[in-house]
Design a protein around this nucleic acid. Structure first.
Length: 557
DNA sequence: CGATCTACGTCGTTAGCCGT
DNA sequence: ACGGCTAACGACGTAGATCG
């Protein structure tokens, strides 16, 4: 390389930023599915990016996991050019341009995939991860998303090469700026020197983009908080019984946070809070905000791929809304079919759909014969004979199995329950799995019934310390918070406005948002019961439920 | 001189962190 | 979930220091 480029200011230095998406963790175990690059320099603020999808080689597949994180499946790649063609495009551009270095985040990975290609690149690689380790050693996480987010670039949720190139270029600009201002590193020669001579400091103290005083000034009241990126996007919505304690716990206890939470706090620049009257209301509001905003770090309450379904009583028909003939539910379906529908397939035919086999054995290969043998053993265990199985029998059996399981958990330490050592395709393992599906279904139906009752209810509870304090009250109608207020001591609990609504009417309002809202409410009820708070609950037209009975009901959900 | 302790280097294993 | 790298750790061995 010419000495002149080694002495060019890093701002002006012409670089090539690259990023790729692949199907595996190394070239020996994966293929390129996307390659993006940008010819740029730190001085350039909106670089042009070339992003190319790449066709899969014959017979290659994209794992479910990779499809999920990249959003790229085989269908997205059918019309894509071959790796060779993309490589030639990059090579043609390489010949036509000046470039002093290739920049990538975690260059080791990109390099292992890009270097074997005949791209005509023989330049030094600069790794923004290696720089970040020395420049930002206190950052809780040093992945591209965390580093870029800390510096102010929020990556899209799908991992795509073009976006990653833009983020890496952004990070490079920020680092070049820092180098000049704080480290007397001005040229590529300086940078190479600095990298060699600066080991990553060990016990560096934690750094955050979020100003300390801002979180320390939060109120110690219940409420909902939004963690915001530099650009104001909502990264995460959470609830707290004390906003100050909860939010500050993210920044105090690095040891106990999961790696995705580390990535999250690395990016937080600001926080917005909504105070609520109680933590119960905070939990309900949190659900509403998550449904509305779908923040990237709220995995569990987001809609994701979950759907509400109802099943017919013979389990063969399903519908997203309930109808007089399709009213088992609401159930939550994560995939194409609900596991319980397996029973319909098993009852209907002696050679069940092989598609079910994977579901049954947790992804293992199980053939139809093994499935039939497992079902036969299941019938034998439970005295179901060989005639057609009646759904009512299955439901009763499900309740028995569920009760047996609850007893086993209550008596034994749940960690010491017998672990099934049978191979996944043995009749024993399959029969046991069928039992599990049935008892889970039974529990789901019980929960569905409960949530439907709860959708027309009135709740009052003691939130403050003093029993003289007025009770907080929530009126739930059509699955929503209809009214919230206070109930004076001695004042009786009113009748829910929708207490006359039929089961079908109640099911009619059960979309996923309502399902989750009532589920959250149930969780909060459980918390109040566990905390020994006095509470009064009136579901439907029944008399108010006493705490002890509520505790028993909640136990079985 | 031999026994014991400490300091230091080397080797092999492990845990954690990146990427997809 | 998986591959691959590195920092961290612990086991081990050797050399040198110290002491009886």
């Amino acid at each position: 390389m010419a000495d002149s480029t080694m002495l060019t200011s890093l701002f002006e230095l012409p670089i090539l930023v690259v990023d790729c998406q692949t199907t595996g963790a190394s070239p020996a175990h994966g293929h390129l599915i996307e390659l993006a690059w940008s010819w740029t320099a730190a001085a350039l603020h909106s670089p042009d990016v070339v992003a190319r999808k790449i066709a899969l080689p014959q017979g290659a597949t994209v794992s479910r996991r990779v499809q999920q994180i990249t959003g790229l499946g085989p269908l997205d790649l059918v019309d894509a050019p071959a790796a060779l063609e993309v490589c030639q495009e990059l090579r043609a551009q390489t010949c036509a341009r000046q470039v002093a270095a290739v920049v990538a985040h975690y260059a080791r990975f990109e390099r292992s995939f890009v270097e074997p290609l005949d791209t005509g690149l023989s330049h030094p690689w600069i790794c923004t991860h290696a720089i970040a380790r020395r420049l930002l050693p206190g950052l809780p996480r040093l992945g591209l998303r965390a580093v870029a987010g800390y510096l102010g670039y929020t990556l899209a949720e799908e991992k795509r090469a073009g976006d990653h190139v833009l983020a890496t270029a952004f990070v490079w600009r920020a680092f070049v700026d820092l180098f000049e201002r704080e480290h007397a590193v001005f040229t590529l020669a300086d940078l190479m020197d600095w990298l060699v001579q600066t080991p990553a400091p060990r016990d560096a103290s934690r750094i955050y983009a979020m100003p300390r005083e801002k979180r320390l000034a939060l109120p110690e009241t219940p409420g909902v908080y939004h963690l915001l990126s530099r650009s104001g996007d909502v990264l995460y919505v959470g609830k707290a019984s004390s906003l100050k304690d909860r939010v500050n716990s993210y920044f105090r206890s690095p040891g106990t946070l999961s790696s995705s939470k580390h990535e999250l706090v690395s990016q937080v620049h600001d926080i917005a809070v909504t105070e609520t009257g109680s933590s119960l209301e905070a939990a309900l509001l949190e659900n509403e905000h998550i449904k509305h905003l779908a923040p990237p770090y709220n995995a569990s309450l987001r809609e994701g791929r979950r759907r509400v379904v109802y099943l017919s009583s013979n389990l063969t028909e399903s519908s997203p809304v309930s109808a007089p003939t399709v009213m088992l539910g609401p159930l939550i379906r994560r995939d194409e079919r609900h596991p319980i529908e397996l029973f319909a397939a098993l009852v209907e035919t002696t050679t069940p759909d092989a598609l079910w086999a994977g579901e049954l054995a947790g992804g293992h290969d199980v053939d139809a014969a093994a499935l039939a043998a497992g079902f036969a053993l299941f019938r034998e265990r439970h005295g179901l004979g060989t005639q057609a199985v009646v759904l009512a029998d299955l439901l009763r059996l499900g309740r028995e199995l569920l009760r047996a399981r609850e007893r086993a958990i209550a008596i034994d330490d749940p960690d010491e329950l017998p672990v099934d050592e049978q191979p996944a395709d043995s009749p024993q393992a399959i029969a046991t799995r069928l039992e599990r599906i049935l008892s889970n279904f039974s529990r789901e139906l019980a929960r569905a019934r409960w949530l439907c009752r709860l959708s027309e209810s009135v709740l009052a509870w003691e939130d403050g310390e003093s029993p003289e304090h007025p009770r907080r009250m929530l009126v739930i109608h059509q699955g929503r918070v209809w009214e919230q207020g206070e109930l004076e001591a001695g004042e009786p609990l009113p009748l829910p406005p929708g207490h006359r609504r039929s089961r079908l009417q109640r099911q009619g309002v059960m979309d996923l948002g309502t399902y989750d809202r009532l589920r959250v409410l149930t969780t909060e009820l459980r918390r109040l019961v566990a905390a020994d708070k006095a509470l009064w609950l009136r579901v439907g037209h029944a008399e108010p439920i006493k705490t002890a009975r509520l505790a028993r009901i909640l136990l079985h959900l």
